[in-house]
């Protein structure tokens, strides 16, 4: 399973109060108003909650655009049965 563009756009819109319709797969994080390292970590934690899995930290930090992030693989979290 990947993160998906809808999830990324919704999460960013909610966290930074952005208009979702302006967010496309081509949007670069560095272009986003208010984007910084603190918000990068908040988004990571937010996405892990929304997807219920874990993201590889290095791969996440290497993402330049929303599309890069939407294509990231979510690693399922082992649940004790």
């Amino acid at each position: 399973m990947t993160v998906s563009q809808i999830t990324v756009a919704e999460a960013l819109a909610d966290l930074l109060d952005l208009d979702e319709t302006t967010l496309t797969p081509e949007t670069l994080f560095e272009e986003i108003d208010g984007w910084d390292s603190v918000n990068a970590l908040r988004l990571l934690v937010f996405l892990e909650r929304e997807t219920g899995g874990k993201l590889d930290y290095n791969a996440y930090m290497a993402c330049k655009s929303l599309g890069d992030l939407a294509a990231l693989e979510v690693q399922p979290v082992a649940v004790a049965s």
Partner: peptide, 15 residues
């Protein structure tokens, strides 16, 4: 109740 929501809400309310 979740920290993620409260953190984000607090951020939005600082605008």
């Amino acid at each position: 109740t979740s920290p993620v929501d409260l953190d984000a809400a607090g951020g939005l309310l600082a605008a």
